[in-house]
Structure formats: structure tokens, C-alpha cells
């Protein structure tokens, strides 16, 4: 597979292709979670559009050469949404899709939270929240100091912003003017014990990032066009790191899971999975007909 290196002006707004990829990723997420009987569907489904736009629209990468030195780095900081990462990597061809259903099983490289080195395409181990962004800042600092043209994309959950470490990392990224770094916040407003407004209010979030010296882009995180556009805006910003606050719908694509924090860390059973897959398959038919 040829590396995808769009250069911003030339991003192919092939929305149909991206939408189909996102749908396929969602179906795989459901299949994996039904099989594993544990895991985190809400955030995974909600971020499927961002992952599709990233891996199939913006990222410079080569699934046949995961350690390619010139690749863009993707750092998943909120490791619990790894089903979307695994499904996306398989969709892109990093490893066979047949491996997906081994998620969380004994001996599987698809650990419950990502383990660097276990699978091609995994740049960092994560699980305890707040740790990925620091690693992303470290990578971006090397890239910047050594004048590399690769970029670093760090994905974080909004609940993860409760952790103090992320703000340490945000300060440092700003200090070193890491314009090769893009943080994407999954702003779905849900976490384990309730909405993030209830658990620990984050607003005004955009203002917080602005005051930390970041270039802030707020988008509908389930709109592929908006996501690609945001990646472009981030790339054209200089001397500042960029943050994309992606307002997403948790559980997106499966009507009975949408916006319900009960689905944060609960996997669907077989019947629920079948229902979800049926819904996604109908959506896929519509997409293919476009």
C-alpha cells in the first residue's frame, strides 16, 4: 500500500470512502466487544469518524512499514478506546482483521489497553489516563529539534483532562512551540460516573487551551468534512501546538448506545450486538448507494 501523504491543500475530500471506512470500523468494534464480553464501546464508536478521517485522509503512514521513520505518529492517550484503534489499524492493513476478535483474550496482542510492541502500529502503551499526551509531546519535541517533517497526533478523552499530568504536558508543548503536534480531545461529555459537567466541569475548555498558548479548533467530531478541515487548519498553524476539540456523540452510529454513559465501559451482549450490527449494515447500504 502506498503511503498516504496528502499535503493539506490536496486532501481528497472523498467523503464516501471515509464514511464507509468509519462504518466498517464501527461494525468491527461491535463484533470485537460482543466477543470479548468486556471493553469500552461508547468512546470507541464516537471516535470512529475521527479515526477514519485520520488514517484514511490525513495521516502519512505505511501499514506495510509500521516503523517507517518518516511516518506521522499517532498516540492514543485514553487507551480504553483501543477497540477503535485496533479496528482502524486492521482496516488499514496493519494486521489481519481476523485477529480483531481476540481482543482481551489470553495470549492476544490486542490487550485490553494497548501495549507498545505487541501489535504493529501501536506507538505507546496506555491505560492510566494522562500518560499518552506526555509521550506525544516528547516525540514532537524530537521531531521539532531534529527538523523532521512528520507530525504527531495525540488522542485524548475529555474525562482524561481531569488528570493533572495532561496540563503539565500542555504547558510544555506550548513552551517549545510544538506546531508539529495536534491533540484531539474526544469531547463526548461522558465518563464513568456521569457527565463530565457533573463529575468535574471542564468549561470553558477552549478558553483554557487558548490561555495555555494553544491553537484551538472546535468541531463536530462526527462530521468527516469538519475533521479533515480541522487537520488542515492545524497543519497550517505555526509556532503553536493545535488542539481539536471534537464534539462527538458517544456511542455514535448505534441508536440505543448514543449519549448514554452506561455504555462507557459495558460491552454489548449477543442480542444487543446483532441489533447494533443490523443498524450499521443498513447505514452501510445507504452509504454504498451514494
Amino acid at each position: 500500500m502506498k503511503p498516504i501523504d496528502p499535503g493539506l491543500a490536496e486532501i481528497k475530500t472523498d467523503m464516501k470512502r471515509l464514511a464507509i471506512a468509519a462504518n466498517s470500523i464501527r461494525q468491527d468494534i461491535i463484533r470485537m466487544l460482543v466477543e470479548s464480553k468486556s471493553g469500552h464501546p461508547a468512546g470507541s464508536l464516537g471516535m470512529a469518524d475521527v479515526f477514519a478521517a485520520l488514517y484514511f485522509g490525513a495521516l502519512r503512514h505505511d501499514p506495510t512499514n509500521p516503523s517507517w521513520d518518516a511516518r506521522d505518529r499517532v498516540v492514543l492517550s485514553n487507551g480504553h478506546i483501543c477497540p477503535v484503534l485496533y479496528a482502524t489499524l486492521a482496516e488499514a492493513g496493519y494486521f489481519p482483521k481476523a485477529q480483531l476478535i481476540s481482543l482481551r483474550k489470553l495470549g492476544s496482542p490486542l490487550q485490553g489497553h494497548p501495549h507498545k510492541g505487541a501489535l504493529p502500529g501501536i506507538e505507546n502503551s496506555s491505560g492510566p489516563l494522562g500518560q499518552g499526551i506526555s509521550q506525544a509531546v516528547g516525540m514532537a519535541l524530537v521531531g521539532k529539534r531534529e527538523k523532521k517533517d512528520w507530525r504527531v497526533y495525540a488522542l485524548l478523552g475529555d474525562g482524561e483532562l481531569d488528570e493533572g499530568q495532561v496540563w503539565e504536558a500542555f504547558l510544555l508543548a506550548s513552551k517549545y512551540k510544538l506546531d508539529n503536534l495536534v491533540a484531539i480531545i474526544d469531547r463526548n461529555n461522558i465518563q464513568i460516573d456521569g457527565t463530565s459537567d457533573e463529575v468535574l466541569p471542564l468549561e470553558p475548555l477552549a478558553d483554557k487551551f487558548s490561555s495555555f498558548g494553544w491553537n484551538v479548533i472546535v468541531i463536530d467530531g462526527n462530521n468527516l468534512n469538519a475533521i479533515l478541515h480541522a487537520f488542515g487548519m492545524a497543519q497550517s498553524c505555526t509556532d503553536k501546538p493545535s488542539v481539536i476539540i471534537a464534539n462527538t456523540i458517544s456511542g455514535k452510529g448505534v441508536s440505543f448506545m448514543e449519549k448514554k454513559f452506561g455504555w462507557h465501559g459495558k460491552s454489548p451482549n449477543k442480542d444487543e450486538g446483532d441489533l447494533a450490527l443490523k443498524e450499521l449494515a443498513e447505514e452501510m447500504k445507504k452509504l454504498e448507494a451514494i
Binding site: S134, A136, G138, A140, L141, L172
Partner: peptide, 10 residues
């Protein structure tokens, strides 16, 4: 905390 994470990224 950041110190250790940044180092891991480097």
C-alpha cells in the same frame, strides 16, 4: 509525571 512521560516519548 510529565518528566517520565516526555522521556518515554523521546
Amino acid at each position: 509525571q510529565n518528566l517520565a512521560g516526555i522521556a518515554a516519548g523521546i
